[in-house]
Amino acid sequence: MTRSSTTAGAFQEARLPVQAKLAAAWTSVMFLYIYVDYLALYKPGVIDDILVGVVHEFDTGPTFVALALTLMAIPSLMILLSTTLPARVNRASNLVVATLYIPASLYNADGESWSYSYFYGLSIGLEVLLLAFILRAAWTWPRTTRATAGRDLAQARV
């Protein structure tokens, strides 16, 4: 006895809130950032440079450390902010931050050797795709009509 896809039933699509999609995407961006930085340590000479205080041609002084922390803290905070900010502010902050992080991701390929082009190409490509997803999700955030919003508000008061 065989079943067709119509008799077996279709899977129900779960509707995730935009906030959950954004938080998941920012989490994925953070995992990529962390793993790319970690795996870059396996490149010959990287640890030797770190030991003498140089990362990607920059001195590892207090300014570098503060900027690196800021660069990683913002997407990390976007995970939380994507789930807690009001919709209008949430949408705007995701659009701004994702837009600013695309060139930051592309910069990571600057000065890298061609022998690691696949590694950086793949990681940067994935980061940019995730940031594009964030931009699309924030840009297409569903709007409620005034009638629906008023009815929802009235129901919430009951």
Score class of each variant (00 low, 15 high):
Ala20Tyr: 03
Leu22Phe: 05
Ala23Lys: 03
Ala23Asn: 03
Ala25Cys: 04
Ala25Tyr: 05
Ala25Ser: 08
Val29Asn: 06
Phe31Met: 12
Phe31Tyr: 14
Leu32Asp: 01
Tyr33Pro: 00
Tyr35Gly: 00
Tyr35Cys: 01
Val36Pro: 02
Val36Cys: 06
Val36Asp: 07
Asp37Asn: 15
Tyr38Gln: 01
Tyr38Leu: 11
Ala40Pro: 01
Ala40Lys: 07
Leu41Cys: 05
Leu41Asp: 08
Lys43Asn: 03
Lys43Leu: 06
Gly45Pro: 12
Gly45Ala: 08
Val46Ala: 10
Val46Cys: 08
Val46Thr: 13
Asp48Tyr: 10
Asp48Phe: 10
Asp49Met: 12
Asp49Pro: 03
Val55Met: 07
Phe58Val: 08
Phe58Asp: 15
Phe58Ile: 07
Asp59Cys: 03
Thr60Leu: 14
Thr60Asp: 06
Thr60His: 05
Pro62Trp: 15
Thr63Gln: 13
Val65Ile: 14
Val65Cys: 04
Val65Glu: 06
Val65Asp: 05
Val65Pro: 00
Val65Trp: 11
Ala66Ser: 10
Leu67Val: 11
Ala68Val: 04
Thr70Ala: 13
Leu71Ala: 09
Leu71Glu: 02
Ile74Gly: 02
Ile74Ser: 07
Ser76Pro: 01
Met78Gln: 07
Met78Pro: 04
Ile79Phe: 14
Ile79Gln: 10
Ile79Arg: 11
Ile79Met: 08
Leu81Met: 13
Leu81Gln: 09
Leu81Lys: 12
Ser82Ile: 06
Thr84Arg: 15
Leu85Thr: 04
Leu85Lys: 02
Pro86Ala: 15
Pro86Phe: 06
Ala87Pro: 08
Arg88Asp: 14
Arg88Gly: 09
Arg88Val: 14
Asn90Gln: 09
Asn90Pro: 00
Asn90Lys: 05
Ser93Gln: 10
Ser93Asn: 08
Ser93Ala: 12
Asn94Phe: 06
Asn94Val: 01
Leu95Trp: 13
Val97Leu: 12
Thr99Cys: 00
Ile102Phe: 10
Ala104Cys: 03
Ala104Pro: 00
Leu106Asn: 02
Leu106Ala: 10
Asn108Ser: 12
Asn108Thr: 13
Ala109Met: 15
Ala109Cys: 15
Asp110Gly: 07
Gly111Val: 03
Glu112Met: 08
Glu112Arg: 14
Ser113Lys: 07
Ser113Thr: 06
Ser113Met: 02
Trp114Lys: 14
Ser115Val: 09
Ser115Lys: 06
Ser115Glu: 10
Ser115Asn: 08
Ser117Lys: 11
Tyr118Glu: 11
Tyr118Ile: 14
Tyr118Cys: 00
Tyr118Thr: 13
Tyr118Pro: 01
Phe119Thr: 00
Tyr120Leu: 10
Gly121Lys: 03
Leu122Ala: 07
Ser123Ile: 01
Ser123Thr: 05
Ser123Asn: 08
Gly125Val: 02
Leu126Asp: 02
Val128Gly: 00
Leu129Arg: 12
Leu129His: 11
Leu130His: 05
Leu131Met: 02
Ala132Lys: 03
Phe133Ser: 04
Leu135Pro: 00
Arg136Trp: 13
Ala137His: 01
Ala137Tyr: 01
Ala137Asn: 03
Ala137Phe: 00
Ala138Glu: 05
Thr140Phe: 12
Arg143Val: 07
Arg143His: 07
Arg143Tyr: 08
Thr144His: 13
Thr144Pro: 04
Thr145Val: 08
Thr145Phe: 09
Thr145Asn: 09
Thr145Ile: 09
Thr145Lys: 12
Arg146Pro: 04
Arg146Lys: 11
Arg146Gly: 01
Ala149Arg: 09
